[in-house]
Design a protein around this nucleic acid. Structure first.
Length: 937
RNA sequence: GGGCGGAUAGCUCAGUUGGUCAGAGCGCUGCCCUUACAAGGCAGAGGUCACAGGUUCGACCCCUGUUCCGCCUACCA
């Protein structure tokens, strides 16, 4: 074995072997409790980032753990077609080629995306493999593949038939760049400093009297259809029912009373109503039966025909035509000001909605869309969590979830893009004359009047009029999240009643980040309950975001991205995985730093070298004996191991990956390596003794168990070592009792992946012996402490006297005499009731089980040597002081500095420097020696 | 505006149902190349647990308030 662990060649080798041997493949008929996880499908456009790395590491830990426990494990992998995101990527490519999707046309554009997918869509999958993810790749799914498309259509039709889907003209969030509707949660809000404009609206029959409205969006005033005041506001309520002239237009609009819309305290207490450009106003428009005047087009530019409909002043209309929102605002404000309509402008903080995909400012836009009636779906989803049929971990998310679900609004599921599941609705040309607008030879727009025919397959004729002309399919596609919402059952074969579905649904655990709790998790719960009549998963582990060391969200533009692939190259996959797991404390973001990964790389290397040590020490006889008949040291490490096994299992049950990781780290490094290996060295000093033979057994047995315990976290190095030890011909000790038999499993043993996961054996826990060894450790540490304080190297042997009162402690020290001497570096060790020794030399109290402070005192006879050393050092120090003085004198002599050659001068200066350093060092040492000199003399 | 989370060693964070916990890793200091490992070993220093009150025999932990950070959410035009 090499002296240090080299992950590179190990990782690809073992991943291939695992894969070839079919360890990842689930077997439906196999025994064992089913344990299924569906992967949160990464976007096909994606490349593995730290969030993925964390998410999939945690899933893989659970999967590997459960697999080793003997459960019937299935981890379903897949990718998401990511509608807008993917379309954007390919559109960008087309732009670079000087063409566009419009030029290509729908069919060819979609074909182009599939080509792109064939080429680049597998990147993220390969990267997941790099991470060691033990997914069942034979069941890889894609949200747009045939089976899932079938599921999508089936669900769509069912929802429609149940009256939970409807089409209608509504105000929706519109991205003027992506040219599509967005759902509420696809809009990000950003605080900006805006202005509040106060505008005079004069009364028609009394132009001297006006009402002042306040607005942050003056450009939309051209589409106003009313002004609202509070019906109980004495300032205005007598004006309700009268009309005002809308400045810059030829229109007159009514004043209405609306207690819902109007907040008397805000602004002027009067608010303009623009139903086509504001969500509140849209609702108010319905209440007061107001017209909706759209003055923007789909690019959020001023629409000439819209403005004509709104009777905008001719000259202004010409100026505004085609202007984007911000320019239109300036023009309108200027026009208002010129006309004397602007009362005042004040600063105002407000939130701006932006598209979550492209960050373009979102515009409320009036258009016909498809909506899922969500309340009836939300109610059972609320209950499922309230009743604990689905458990959210950490629990703090429950309130968030419930709050959001109770306040949920209908889900706009139609998108005006091409990449996605086209909506399975068709329209008869004959029955919808006038509602179908041909926009190009091959494309149509459908007004809100069009009557859809929703079906699983394209209808051959119109059932209403009987015409067999091909019907026109709705050009819109579904929100990407619609298909993701079906993921837990669609990936298992639904709508077919597959054996997989019967065996693995509901799945066991969902592991995901909180950022898609509403986008995805909530919708899966709703759809699972609606379609399957059963929750999609029992537990949801919600992990945090990975941030950089400063707590900033990692982003390419900030340049603070720590790339998991780079980290894997540099430190190995196991180190990265262990880092992420150890830092996954619930409810807190992970602030990742490279140093941390480096630290766990060192841990891997530590394990590696422990393995080397074991291999080097396996020569010689081995003996078998029950643990109780082995040495106290062996019993001690076995007992400690049981506790570690217990803690790891319990932590994993509770999704405390951090605690499990820390327990492993501590046990392996600080107990097994730091202490047990050192203790074992003395036990094996006499190679052929029975003690050595038994120690070898314990050494390997413990190590082998440790490897299995660690495997879910660090799959590669554990496998490599496991196999190496086997190849060296060393039997792996008596394997602990297997929690479950592996009979019926699709694969035989041979890999640590399918070895049984350790379970604690309470019979092997031995607290008295743990106390005994703890006493030894304390004693050794006490001596080392004295060495440290006085700077005495381990190479100098000391003579130690220990005075003890108790019989038990006497026995313990006697038993471990040889070990103590070795670890503390002693030449002699005297233990007894009447041992002489000054109490002052003792360290703090060392407590033995049942012992008292003061049971023990230590006399470091070796310290007597200090006196000799002191005098030697003193002599040397005097010498140095003299030479220091001499060179100093030289250097301060102007003649010397001026006349001697530069190289000589430099040399003298260097000498002076050296003398100074040595002098300082020596005097420090001397001071310490003197300090203890009194006690030891 | 509402809600949630955070504030503990120089840095990043643990801290289980109020009573041997004030802890870990990294960093730092000193000593050591002791035949598994210098990516290492041994030892050490560092904290009024944000601030102010309160409950209690006792509070990092519970309650109230304050300050400062994040995040989510929201129609106050």
């Amino acid at each position: 074995m090499e002296k240090s662990y080299d992950p590179k060649q190990v990782e690809t080798r073992w991943y291939r072997v695992w894969s070839e041997r079919g360890y990842f493949t689930a077997s439906v008929p196999a025994e064992g409790r089913p344990y299924a996880i569906v992967i949160p499908p990464p976007n096909i456009t994606g490349s593995l980032h730290m969030g993925h790395a964390l998410n999939n590491t945690l899933q893989d830990i659970l999967i590997r753990w459960r697999r080793m426990q003997g459960m019937n494990v299935l981890w379903v992998p897949g990718t998401d077609h990511a509608g807008i995101a993917t379309q954007n990527v390919v559109e960008k490519q087309l732009l670079g080629e000087g063409t566009s999707r419009e030029q290509l046309g729908r069919e060819r554009f979609i074909k182009r995306i599939w080509e792109w997918k064939a080429q680049s869509g597998g990147t993220i999958i390969d990267q997941l493999k790099r991470l060691g993810a033990s997914c069942d790749w034979s069941r890889l799914r894609f949200t747009l593949d045939e089976g899932l498309s079938k599921a999508v259509r089936e669900v769509f039709v069912r929802l429609y038939e149940d009256g939970l889907l409807y089409r209608g003209e509504r105000l929706i969030n519109w991205c003027p760049r992506c040219l599509t509707a967005l759902s509420d949660i696809e809009v990000e809000h950003e605080d900006v400093r805006g202005k509040l404009y106060h505008i005079f609206y004069p009364l028609v029959d009394d132009p001297a009297v006006h009402i002042v409205v306040a607005t942050t969006r003056p450009e939309t005033m051209l589409g106003d259809t009313a002004v609202a005041v509070h019906p109980e506001d004495p300032r205005y309520n007598r004006l309700i029912g009268r009309t005002v002239r809308l400045p810059l237009t030829l229109r007159e609009i009514p004043i209405v009373g609306d207690p819902i819309l109007v907040n008397r305290e805000f602004g002027t207490g009067a608010v303009k109503i623009t139903p086509a450009h504001d969500f509140n106003d849209f609702e108010a428009g319905i209440r007061h039966n107001l017209a909706r005047l759209s003055i923007f087009d789909q690019h959020a530019r001023m629409d000439p025909s819209g403005m004509q409909g709104a009777q905008v002043d001719e000259a202004l209309r010409v100026r505004l035509a085609g202007k984007p929102v911000h320019e239109a605002r300036a023009i309108v404000v200027e026009a208002l000001d010129k006309g004397g309509h602007l009362a005042k402008v004040e600063d105002h903080a407000m939130a701006l909605g932006k598209c979550y995909r492209c960050k373009t400012v979102v515009e409320p836009f009036l258009s016909p869309q498809w909506f899922v009636k969500i309340k009836p779906l939300a109610e059972p989803a609320i209950k499922a969590v309230e009743e604990g049929r689905i458990r959210l971990i950490p629990e703090s998310w429950v309130n968030n979830y419930l709050g959001w679900m109770r306040d949920i609004k209908d889900w706009c599921v139609s998108r005006q893009i091409w990449w996605g599941h086209q909506i399975p609705a068709w329209y008869c040309r004959h029955c919808n004359e006038g509602a179908i607008i041909q926009t190009s030879p091959k494309s149509y727009a459908l007004s809100s009047e069009a009557k859809p025919l929703v079906a699983r397959q394209a209808p051959s004729h119109c059932p209403d009029c009987g015409h067999s002309d091909p019907l026109i399919q709705d050009p819109d596609v579904l929100d990407t999240w619609f298909s993701s919402a079906l993921w837990p059952f669609s990936t298992l074969g639904w709508p077919d009643q597959t054996p997989e579905l019967a065996r693995y649904y509901p799945t066991a655990t969902l592991v995901t980040g909180f950022d898609i709790l509403f986008f995805w998790v909530a919708r899966m719960i709703m759809m699972g309950l609606k379609v399957m009549g059963e929750v999609p998963f029992r537990e949801v582990y919600i992990h945090a975001l990975v941030r950089d060391a400063e707590g900033q969200k990692m982003s390419k533009s900030k340049g603070n991205v720590i790339d998991p692939l780079t980290m894997m190259d540099k430190y190995g996959t196991d180190a990265l995985r262990f880092t992420l797991a150890s830092m996954a404390s619930p409810g807190r973001d992970i602030k990742l730093s490279e140093e941390r990964i480096e630290g766990y790389r060192n841990f891997a290397n530590k394990l590696w070298n422990a393995a080397r040590f074991i291999l080097m020490n396996l020569e010689g006889p081995r003996a078998e004996a029950p643990v109780a008949d082995r040495s106290p040291v062996d019993q001690w490490i076995t007992s400690r191991l049981q506790k570690c096994i217990d803690e790891v299992n319990h932590s994993l049950e509770a999704y405390r990956f951090d605690e499990a990781g820390n327990a492993l780290y501590h046990f392996i490094w600080h107990e097994y390596c730091d202490w047990y290996l050192e203790l074992a060295k003395t036990a094996m000093a006499d190679k052929d003794s029975r003690e050595a033979a038994l120690t070898r057994t314990t050494l390997v047995e413990t190590f082998e168990t440790m490897l299995r315990l660690l495997h879910p976290f660090m799959p590669f190095i554990t496998e490599e070592i496991w196999q190496t030890i086997k190849q060296e011909g060393a039997p792996l000790g008596s394997a602990p009792p297997a929690p479950t038999k592996r009979e019926g499993a699709p694969h035989a043993g041979g890999s640590i992946m399918v070895a049984p996961y350790p379970t604690p054996n309470p019979a092997l826990i031995h607290d008295p012996i743990e106390g005994e060894i703890k006493a030894i450790q304390d004693l050794v540490t006490a001596v080392r402490d004295l060495r440290g304080v006085h700077g005495i190297p381990i190479s100098r042997k000391l003579s130690l006297s220990v005075r003890v009162a108790g019989v038990e402690i006497h026995r313990i020290l006697d038993t471990h005499r040889r070990t103590i001497m070795a670890l503390a570096g002693l030449s002699t060790l005297t233990v007894g009731k009447d041992v002489a020794g000054p109490a002052e030399a003792a360290t703090g109290p060392i407590l033995f089980p049942g012992g008292q402070p003061g049971d023990l005192s230590i006399d470091l006879a070796g310290l007597r040597d200090v006196a000799k050393e002191t005098s030697q050092k003193e002599k040397r120090l005097k010498e140095l002081a003299l030479r220091l003085e001499q060179t100093e004198k030289k250097l301060s002599n102007p003649d010397f500095v001026a006349k001697v050659p530069p190289e000589v001068l430099a040399k003298t200066r260097g000498q002076h420097q050296e003398f100074r350093i040595e002098y300082d060092k020596l005097s420090g040492e001397l001071r310490r020696l003197r300090e203890m000199g009194g006690g030891a003399a």
